[in-house]
Write a protein that binds this DNA or RNA. Structure first.
Length: 519
RNA sequence: GGCGGGGUAGCUCAGUGGUUAGAGCAAUCGCUUCAUAAGCGAUGGGUCGCCGGUUCAAACCCGGCCCCCGCUACCA
């Protein structure tokens, strides 16, 4: 027996200022489809997610609510997980950066980089607002005529000591990695941006410390300073799998096979993060995938816009799988997408209710009525292909390629248009509901073939809509247990040892609609 | 400003030189009634951003122009 290949993937960790919206969920969903697909394909998957808590905003928010920061963080973590669980996000590790374990490992990492000579003390000079007690960027300074936009008082030039990470030392190595390894940053457009950036601007050393903060992780070599948030946030990807305290688990999983992130933080993950890892003597991640953003009714979502949509609100009106299907089918994962209630209804009714759900209903009801749900004499019979001019093995290979490249919408489009719709056409062309009156055996064979199409469909849809795919699959007595099916099983039509039977629960001879129409 | 991507049917998009430019959704009409008022078929609808060039032939190649979007150091 050979060991399973490992697959380690992460999503970005989130600021727990407010509950997750559909944009945050988009990332988790895309990552989840990949994780589920990899598990199906026999990988030993570790899927890591978490919350990024060591930020001032979090401490402020807790204060505002009169809560201890830790209590606040723990409660938000609970709320986040509630949403992820409702969306069937199959994470294996959920890490909070305020956890003691993370902090300890974080300090170990910082010490290591310091010992390796990639952190040095310097000073940071910039425009400071005494009212805000923080530095403002040159941009803010320029745009507000040298005044603080909050306090309307002049910003003052100020210099304070800090610690720098020697990012510049990795410029050539990074450029080489970016250019020679196309998989390192996906999609391609983001990779080009990252290469272009270094070529145009070079790489400057980065201030990684803050001074005089209470909430945060102190630098091990100088406790006067805390580690600036993103430096510790990125480290969850390794502390979550045991860096610094469980080397066996860490060694097994690292390097990361895919970091799923939003396109806005691509630079952190493709410039700073690999450099940090190299500075500590570790490998860079294999792939960083930058997904697009979700808009609502064509406009950017935001608190100030008052158009924030939460996943649970959509699920309440439909179902988890409807939610998952919509975003994976309608929004190209590498690019941006839009959510609107109208479009949601359209996609749901057309593809899930009418096409898929109805197909299941009709292929259950006719056999149930005419054959008592048992396809006598089909044991050992190889099904006929239902879709003309389709090489099933090639088709499945195509879908697999789309899934592996995170082109989820294209994968689903292929499944619906090239497989599901033709199955409905096949039924129409052969009309088993008529044929059954003249040639019961022939009608049975037609239905048998159609049901086998549903088997293929259920397998292909498993990573996308796990519950519904299982409901379809277990509506019949297919021999391979659901937990064991792989895409390879969808690639061929084979005989089964027992007569095919309808195993779905029937009420008055009919199954419960899988996706009841909405609207 | 610089670098990158894009402008194709009402909507979302496919289509990198070769017959009358395609798909899905939406619209209209017909067939059907096994099924979730579901299914199937047909039809309408496009000066392929604008102008010029290369070519026997251009949505596709080249030049110019207009417009949109992304990146340009810390908001998924």
């Amino acid at each position: 027996m050979t060991a399973k290949p490992k697959w380690f993937q992460t999503t970005a960790i989130d600021y727990p200022n407010s509950r997750p919206h559909i944009g945050t969920a988009f990332e988790k969903l895309g990552a989840d489809v990949q994780a589920r697909y990899r598990r199906m394909e026999g990988y030993d998957v570790c899927f890591l997610m978490g919350n990024d808590e060591n930020t001032l905003k979090v401490a402020d928010k807790a204060k505002e609510l009169g809560l201890d920061p830790q209590a606040y963080c723990d409660d938000m973590a609970r709320q986040f997980r509630e949403v992820w669980d409702a969306l069937d996000i199959s994470y294996d590790v959920f890490i909070q950066t305020s956890s003691e374990r993370h902090k300890q490992c974080c300090r170990k990492f910082a010490q290591k980089v310091y010992d390796n000579g990639y952190i040095y003390k310097g000073s940071y000079e910039g425009w400071y607002c005494p009212g805000c007690e923080e530095f403002k960027s040159d941009k803010v300074h320029a745009e507000n005529a040298g005044q603080c936009p909050n306090h309307k008082r002049p910003l003052v030039r100020r210099s304070e000591p800090c610690y720098y990470f020697k990012l510049s030392a990795f410029k050539d190595r990074l450029l080489k990695e970016l250019k020679e390894n196309p998989q390192f940053v996906q999609p391609e457009s983001r990779r080009n941006e990252m290469i272009g950036f270094i070529e145009a601007e070079g790489l400057d050393d980065l201030n990684i410390s803050r001074h005089g903060e209470q909430w945060g992780i102190p630098l091990p070599f100088d406790p006067e300073f805390t580690i600036y948030v993103w430096f510790d946030a990125l480290l969850t990807y390794i502390t979550g799998i045991g860096y610094g305290d469980d080397e066996a688990t860490f060694a097994k999983n690292w390097p990361c096979d895919t970091h799923f992130i939003g396109k806005d933080i691509t630079r952190f993950h493709t410039h700073i993060w690999p450099a940090m890892l190299w500075a500590a003597g570790l490998d860079a991640p294999t792939k960083v995938f930058s997904h697009g953003f979700v808009t609502v009714d064509g406009t950017k979502m935001g608190k100030s816009m008052g158009n924030v949509v939460q996943p649970l609100d959509i699920i309440a009106k439909s179902s988890v799988d409807a939610y998952r299907y919509f975003f994976m089918r309608e929004c190209p994962f590498p690019g941006d997408g839009d959510y609107s209630g109208q479009r949601f209804e359209e996609v749901y009714n057309t593809e899930l209710a009418n096409n898929l759900g109805n197909l299941l209903s009709r292929t259950i009801t006719i056999p149930a009525k005419n054959y008592g749900g048992v396809f006598d004499g089909t044991a050992g019979v190889t099904p006929d292909a239902v879709v003309p001019n389709l090489n099933l093995a090639e088709f499945v290979a195509t879908v697999r390629g789309h899934v592996e490249a995170c082109r989820y919408n294209t994968a689903l489009q292929a499944i619906v248009q090239d497989f599901l719709t033709p199955t409905n056409q096949y039924l129409e062309a052969n009309a088993p509901w008529k044929l059954v009156k003249t040639d019961k055996e022939a009608a049975k064979k037609v239905l048998f073939n159609a049901v086998q199409s549903l088997r293929v469909t259920a397998i292909l849809l498993k990573p996308f809509i796990p519950k519904s795919a299982e409901a379809i699959y277990t509506s019949f007595n297919f021999p391979t247990p659901w937990a064991d099916v792989r895409y390879a099983d969808a690639a061929e039509l084979t005989a089964q040892p027992d007569d095919l039977r309808v195993t779905a629960e029937l009420i008055d001879g009919k199954p419960k609609p899988l996706f009841p129409r909405i609207g």
